[in-house]
Design a protein around this nucleic acid. Structure first.
Length: 563
RNA sequence: UGUCUCAUGGUGUAAUGGUAGCACUGCAGUUUCUGGAUCUGCCUGUUAAGGUUCGAGUCCUUAUGAGACAACCA
């Protein structure tokens, strides 16, 4: 037995964990591990952020370090407290606790002081050219830039102008502070990058009108990492080109052996989804979805409302891994992850989403039998409950066919099926309206086949779910599907809004569910037997039950039908 | 016609110079009071060409393809 444990396969490290372990082995930073999750509070978190969160918090946890939450709030034009709250809620929901909450705005004074130091060293200057001129002078990746005429302004003058940038004496857009590096560098970010710009049209959500000059990302981010003692600054691939500049700024100011290390990994791309904040915002603003938490959105709040468990998201992220390859991840894997998670935890209930009446013609009128049924066959501790059985029931319209193919295991005249947790019945026929639509299905039950009786062990091909027509509740069921109809909306030439899946939401208003669902609370997760996983929508009320389909069950009959 | 990064089945990801493995998907079967779940089996892969080496997915060279970078955004 002990040998078995030794033989357990070691989980292989991703390249970031390998770097971290090597740094630890090399004794860097005194063996300390510290990461940070640095969202800009300008939007809701999505599953791509969840990937970063799992890494930032996960690395800290696995290597005995800490992870801080830091809001990168250096642009008051776009940022808002509204987002600060939702971001914290979403991180907690994912199951993580930060050691501290910081704000880049906490460092405005320190950053200011360092900028002055840089000016005094002759390594930064105030440029008063227009944004367009500066852009033009940057050149292009293949053409070197040209130096600003203000590049060699005297230090005293730079100090004076920089001070004025922050007093309101300088108009927004009129001046910037730039680091003096190399206008001919092959790395565009080295061509005298902007460090500060003037913003006096918007108050900052935390510092109000105190500051008029705000630091730019490349300067603020790296220094914030440094101030906090971050050892591993993990970010996505598009910041790869920024790393030399990140290092450059740190080199200007560092005063010990300690330095944070930036490592980049691939961002999450999901098929049939868009992940850009801009596009999501457009979907919300144009009413193409009901809001940031629309269950079709890849936002954390959307997934939560859809019925995804935190565990399902962790499992998914675990499976896709972290590399430097720009992958397209199959949304099918996310769906698999949620089925895997909910299979173990969701109570099985009976819900008929497209009901047709089934009458057991030889069952006494008015009789009510309470049938015992198991809550979750995957979890012995989940217990049992009772459901009412009566002469008139509802079953799925799909579960009856007058002329059925050979492999149809459900109700068709002459065929026996089992009603789950109740009796075996034999279908005898149906009644149709003038259009040929089935109005009622008829069957006879065998009183020796009640679940638990010896005769109940008789082999029958199909087992159907049902609810009593007299002991059930009405419900609305929202069937959600993938938001887009093409695999990669971002790669399509057409406008992404034309690519929306018209069938991404179907509302069924005439569903019948078992009475036990009457006291279900918002977000409670269930498996509607034979249909899928559903949860209680946040708009649901006892007087109007609303369920969202998280994901359907795998359906091998649907595949068989297609053949 | 720059710099940087990347390339393993349909998709994603391992193999850290020594038997190309895992997961998802797909297919076939087993089993089942959910056509779910379970269990079993199968299909499919190292971008190309050279080189180093006893031995290369891994190291080197070149080619090809893909991505990132020219916001007073982060």
């Amino acid at each position: 037995m002990e040998n078995k444990i030794d033989e357990a396969p070691k989980k292989s490290l991703n390249f970031i964990e390998a770097f971290v372990e090597q740094d630890l082995k090399d004794g860097k930073n005194g063996g300390r591990i510290q990461t940070r999750f640095p969202p800009e509070p300008n939007g809701y978190l999505h599953i791509g952020h969840a990937k970063a969160i799992c890494l930032d918090f996960g690395v800290a946890k696995n290597y005995g370090g800490i992870c801080n939450l830091r809001f990168d709030d250096t642009n008051p034009v776009k940022e808002d407290v509204e987002y600060v709250d939702s971001i914290q809620e979403d991180i907690k929901w994912l199951g993580y606790n930060w050691a501290n909450v910081y704000y880049a705005s906490d460092y405005f004074q320190q950053l200011w002081d360092l900028a002055i130091e840089l000016i005094k060293k002759g390594k930064a200057y105030v440029d008063e050219q227009s944004a367009e001129t500066i852009a033009k002078q940057k050149g292009s990746p293949t053409v070197p830039g040209v130096e600003s005429p203000y590049r060699n302004r005297p230090i005293e003058e730079n100090l004076e102008l920089f001070r004025k940038m922050n007093t309101g004496e300088i108009a927004e857009g009129a001046m910037v502070l730039r680091a003096k590096i190399d206008m001919a560098s092959s790395n565009m970010h080295f061509r005298d990058p902007l460090m500060y710009r003037v913003i006096n049209s918007h108050p900052h959500h935390r510092t109000g009108w105190t500051w008029k000059a705000y630091p730019m990302y490349d300067y603020a981010h790296g220094q914030s990492d440094y101030f906090e003692g971050v050892t591993h600054s993990l970010c996505t691939l598009e910041f790869e080109v920024h790393r030399p500049l990140y290092d450059w700024f740190i080199d200007q100011f560092k005063d010990s052996d300690y330095r944070p290390r930036q490592i980049e990994f691939n961002r999450l791309n999901l098929t049939y989804t868009v992940m850009s904040k801009r596009k999501m915002l457009q979907l919300v603003q144009e009413g193409l979805v009901s809001g940031w938490d629309d269950p079709r959105m890849p936002t954390i709040c959307g997934l939560r409302r859809r019925g995804y468990s935190p565990e399902s998201i962790h499992n998914f992220i675990d499976k896709i891994g972290y590399t430097k390859f720009e992958a397209q991840n199959d949304i099918g894997l996310l769906e698999h992850s949620v089925r895997e998670s909910l299979n173990k935890t969701a109570t099985r209930v009976n819900a008929v989403i497209d009901p047709v009446k089934l009458i057991i013609t030889n069952y006494p009128e008015g009789k009510v039998e309470m049938m015992e049924t198991i809550n979750n066959p995957e979890d012995e501790t989940a217990g049992k409950r009772e459901i009412a059985f009566t002469r008139e029931l509802y079953v799925e319209r799909d579960d009856f066919m007058e002329d059925a193919p050979k492999k149809y295991f459900r109700m068709t005249p002459g065929q026996e099926v089992r009603l789950k947790s109740a009796y075996i019945i034999k279908c005898t026929g149906c009644k149709k309206d003038e259009n040929g639509k089935v109005e009622e299905v008829y069957a006879e039950f065998d009183d020796q086949t009640k679940s638990g009786m010896p005769e109940a062990n008789r082999k029958v091909k199909g087992t159907l779910h049902w609810v009593s027509a007299t002991h059930c509740l009405d419900a609305e069921v929202r069937l959600y599907d993938r938001l887009f109809s093409v695999e990669n909306p971002s790669a399509d030439e057409r406008d992404f809004r034309e690519l929306l899946n018209p069938g991404s939401l179907k509302v069924l208003s005439n569903c019948k569910v078992e009475t036990s669902l009457g006291n279900a609370k918002a977000l409670d997760q269930f498996q509607f037997q034979r249909i899928g996983y559903f949860n209680v929508d946040s708009d649901s009320a006892p007087s109007k039950l609303i369920f969202n389909r998280t994901v359907s069950l795998k359906d091998s009959w649907a595949k068989e039908k297609e053949k």
